[in-house]
Design a protein around this nucleic acid. Structure first.
Lengths: 349, 349
DNA sequence: CTGTTAGCGCGTTCAA
DNA sequence: TTGAACGCGCTAACAG
């Protein structure tokens, strides 16, 4: 039986009200009374019941995040890092973090959003990895429920978000490969329904077109953001009659799969095949070879969207409602000039 | 302004109680009344306020999990997979999942546990990655708070846990290497304060001793469970005058770092150096070479500890209060007989 | 079958 | 400076 206000009041012959005020730091309490109350609370091991506080305050001081997971073997380091950022910032601001893991675009996911919003389980939500037809955003906008998204949306809805400029990032990455002398550059992207897939592919196209390079459908593949997907698509691309000399991947896990496939074929990555990723998850710095990638500060993104949401919940105006961060190309060892033995080097002559 | 019971009652000229009972599915309500209530609730978009329900029921139907994170670049795929298991099972059982991310063994972590327990934020807790002197477990046992741990504990405290037999697992892994002909086998373990580090190292020692192989302090290193740590320790080990022909890693990330280091030195992993990991995270199956590792079903572990905790919360007796699962060695390409060029092959003759 | 009353633990009127 | 009374939204015990 936990200690409640009434217990303290009874022991000190005070009213519950006075005890509540003393503990709440209200000014209209005699200094001596406050002292006695604080001491008694300490001694008795009192801790306020948050549920009761919430009912009274009509606030949960909790934010929610539904992580899109696919299958039991799901494990994207990207989300762990985002979670670390979100988790630390919520804690710092004395908020709670409610997490659910649901497969994207399913009835289960939809129900989870409804539960969270309509049961008043959370004060606000973070939406990660926006999609082309994002019913989550439509739902939240429709209900006027506070949220901040990581990622933009195609539709004409005005909501607060933070995004990283995937188009600029992938343009830079492509440009980097072109500068190195590559001409036959393949692309293994993310599933089309993800917004960022769209932008990143756009960056690739943009850079290729700027240099008058052909964009071949056969060189554009769609992965599933996993290492396995990258591996399989790369096997296919590398098996082409005229294989690419470089492969751009829509995320780092895919890139790691590409590297595995290349190595399995006896190619030296960075020489026989250049590979560039996107995200800069911790693992890729110490991969072999270390991965050239477009770096987005995932942890900081977590911190920032969380901070934006809490500002929103506290009724403050957001200084920037819609933010676009510029990613940075990090050149490591997985990219280099097309090697002497590669077919398309000859083609390029 | 959300719709509450009172609104429905007012519209139908009923009492709040009757409405509550109708919606709650109690039998003592006229069929026709129930129908009217259900329809009105539907039309008006009624959703019960969970906070009020919780206050009344004295239960939160929420379980908590504090993920130990180290630094901003933290990202262990292992935890993502565990989280997926826990998350899906909580949802299936209509529970909520409260997550915090805190650096292990710090005042912040301690405060988080106190907050969760003493503020009645959660009904029970999951404790992951038990430690040698685990104040979390001491605290929870001391308070009689319901929890289930992933991992055993040294002290003589009786609490429910699920663990994987790390000793047996690492013994198998070591045996595997010995069978292949390795004699000079190094070990890069986890930080000593983690319980599983203790068991896994024990398995290594046990197998080595069984075969009368010397256990050299110089061949036993301590990593930090990251790829970077594995990379650095491996560099040191491979730089020894008589380097090992095989390296056992305390977890898969460490093993991936070892592989990078070996490849950077021009060694072919699986021939010049054998590497074995522990965990079997999704990434290692499509690494190059694919990693031989001790497989523990992380997702299922998440599901199971979650299920155990919820059983506990519902007052049921646990069929097995303390469970030890046997891991399984998965042999892939990163391990093979010591290659012709390796020093210790000559030694072994 | 239905309504009245009471209470979960806390914060916030209003009066004294 | 303190206390009594009320309400947050809901469920449960008790009458009728």
């Amino acid at each position: 039986m936990p200690v409640i206000l009434k217990d303290i009041a009874a022991r000190l012959n005070l009213s519950v009200t006075t005890v509540s005020r003393a503990l709440g730091g209200y000014p209209d309490v005699a200094a001596e009374t406050r002292e006695r109350v604080l001491q008694a609370a300490e001694e008795m091991g009192y801790h306020p019941d948050v549920t009761a506080q919430r009912l009274q305050k009509r606030r949960t001081d909790t934010i929610g995040l539904v992580i899109p997971t696919s299958g039991p073997r799901f494990s994207d380091p990207y989300f762990t890092e985002l979670l670390a950022g979100v988790g630390n910032e919520t804690a710092r601001q004395q908020f709670e973090l409610l997490i659910a893991t649901r497969p994207p675009d399913t009835p289960e996911e939809r129900e989870t959003y409804e539960r969270m919003v309509q049961g008043h389980r959370v004060d606000g939500l973070l939406v990660a990895r926006t999609r082309r037809r994002d019913e989550r955003i439509a739902f939240l906008c429709g209900n006027g429920f506070p949220f901040v998204a990581f990622g933009r949306w195609g539709e004409e809805l005005d909501f607060p978000y933070l995004d990283v400029d995937g188009q600029a990032g992938m343009d830079q990455a492509t440009q980097h490969l072109i500068n190195l002398g590559h001409r036959r550059i393949a692309y293994i992207g993310a599933p089309r329904e993800l917004m960022f897939a769209h932008f990143r592919l756009g960056g690739y196209r943009q850079a290729m077109e700027r240099h008058g390079l052909p964009i071949e459908d056969g060189l554009i593949a769609v992965g599933d953001l996993t290492q396995k997907g990258g591996y399989e698509e790369a096997q296919r691309l590398l098996g082409l009659k005229v294989p690419p000399t470089a492969i751009l991947a829509g995320n780092d896990l895919t890139a790691l799969g590409v590297i595995s496939a290349a190595q399995e074929r006896g190619l030296e990555v960075g020489r026989d095949l250049s590979v560039v990723g996107f995200d800069d998850i911790p693992q890729v710095e110490h991969a072999h070879p270390s991965l050239t990638t477009v770096s987005q500060p995932i942890y900081d993104i977590g911190v920032t969207i969380c901070r934006m949401l809490i500002q929103l919940l506290q009724g403050e105006e957001l200084t920037e409602r819609q933010v676009l961060w510029q990613p940075e190309l990090v050149v490591r060892s997985s990219s280099g000039p097309p090697g002497p033995g590669t077919v398309s080097r000859d083609l390029a002559k």
